[in-house]
């Protein structure tokens, strides 16, 4: 008998990256480390910028493709349009 049950904390095992048909790619040469993408990502799978940090401590945003579902929200909110949605090809 298969039961549709789950133990607590198992959502990290559901790797939503398999849903993606477009992959966000960030052009670091244009990125201003504003952290908007990190703030808006619904997964949330963008880390590194951390708006609370001082400008000199900020790093470039890093996308975790295991969970990025390719929704494109980050590309849409980026003020300098440095995130491109590239088709996933298998």
């Amino acid at each position: 008998m298969m039961l549709p049950i789950a133990k607590p904390g198992t959502s990290k095992e559901n790797k939503t990256g398999s849903w993606r048909s477009f992959r966000p790619e960030t052009d670091k040469s244009k990125c201003i480390k504003c952290g908007m993408c990190e703030l808006f990502c619904p997964e949330p799978c963008i880390t590194g910028v951390e708006q609370s940090k001082k400008p000199e401590e900020k790093t470039f945003p890093k996308t975790d493709y295991d969970y990025c579902k390719g929704c494109g929200v980050c590309a849409n909110v980026c003020p300098v349009k440095c995130i491109k949605m590239v088709p996933e090809e298998k």
Binding site: M2, I5, K7
Partner: peptide, 19 residues
């Protein structure tokens, strides 16, 4: 604690129905 009535991805939904 457990959750019942879980979500099943396309890779698993049909297995539940077949079972």
């Amino acid at each position: 604690p457990i959750s019942m009535g879980e979500y099943a991805f396309p890779s698993h939904y049909q297995l539940f129905r077949e079972d």
